[in-house]
Design a binder for these strands. Sequence first.
DNA 1: TTTTGTGTTCAGTCACGACTGAACAAAATA
DNA 2: TATTTTGTTCAGTCGTGACTGAACACAAAA
Lengths: 166, 166
Amino acid sequence: MLHPAAVEFIERLSLLAESAGIPRIGGCILGLLVMEESPLSSDELVSRLQVSKGSVSANIRLLESRGVVRRISHLGDRKDRFEVDASFPERMIERSLAEQRSMRLVAMEARSRLPSRYVRAKDALRRIEAFSTISVESMERMLTKWRESAHEDEAAATVHEDVAVS
Amino acid sequence: MLHPAAVEFIERLSLLAESAGIPRIGGCILGLLVMEESPLSSDELVSRLQVSKGSVSANIRLLESRGVVRRISHLGDRKDRFEVDASFPERMIERSLAEQRSMRLVAMEARSRLPSRYVRAKDALRRIEAFSTISVESMERMLTKWRESAHEDEAAATVHEDVAVS
DNA sequence: TTTTGTGTTCAGTCACGACTGAACAAAATA
DNA sequence: TATTTTGTTCAGTCGTGACTGAACACAAAA
């Protein structure tokens, strides 16, 4: 049904996703949607992955909220279908970008509020701030650069999609 | 005993650490070590954080293995002491760098092994590879740049340390 | 309206893993 | 050697949260 390489991809992706805070089944859904040629419905996910409807529903909503999966509802079809947002690795990075930002914020607030006797702590905090600042900036630069270059490719992708729809 | 701002820092850091896969107590240890002027021993961590010896031992080993905490053993003192490695945010980033690398590897292996009928999957994988490649490169550039600039600051830091030791 | 199909919610179950505390190991003192 | 101090290991407890399955809500068809 599915090529062994596809199965292995799904398994390995679900492990990676788990370490990024996404439940195992969520990772499986993501992997299967990457491998599939066309969007899958909720009950297809249930039967293909042998998990409960509730679990699929919860994990789909999680993946939607993180912007890695899109829901598409065709006219005249009550069934919703799901596909991966091709930019899902981008969304993963955005999460770690957000973490860096709040790391920076936490360090700054602590340093400004601490009394001056916390000499070493303030030193350490300054270093943390400096690092998270350049790390945030570097990630932001990388993302904008990526988006620009992706824009160029999109012309071809759009044509491809038009063909598929017609 | 500890300034309120320091307490809040520890609490917020432990939350951030948790989302990065470090147990809550590990995050508390890390935060306390950042706030403290001098390295702390194992039993000091036990009494300050009100947790068990076993828990401190396990979490310290985890933090050591991730390179965010250093163990220092003074001559003539049986007690080990611990301090944060000032570069611990760097180590956090290195983790997400490693994740990006394996994401790239997983995608490449899958794409090369999949038969050609997996058209859309291969497209998606290609996109994933492209993104993780530039993201890995950008992170690497950022890290080397940071290390170079940190080298310059280290002269001052070393002087400071010498004073503390003497 | 009733029936049928689809998606969500929720109480209950289960598994994983963090934490504890006691037993143990190791090493320096006496 | 025995004693004291420090760190680690491990069996057991506990809490969190993911998963299930049934009940529910909703909307389209009959």
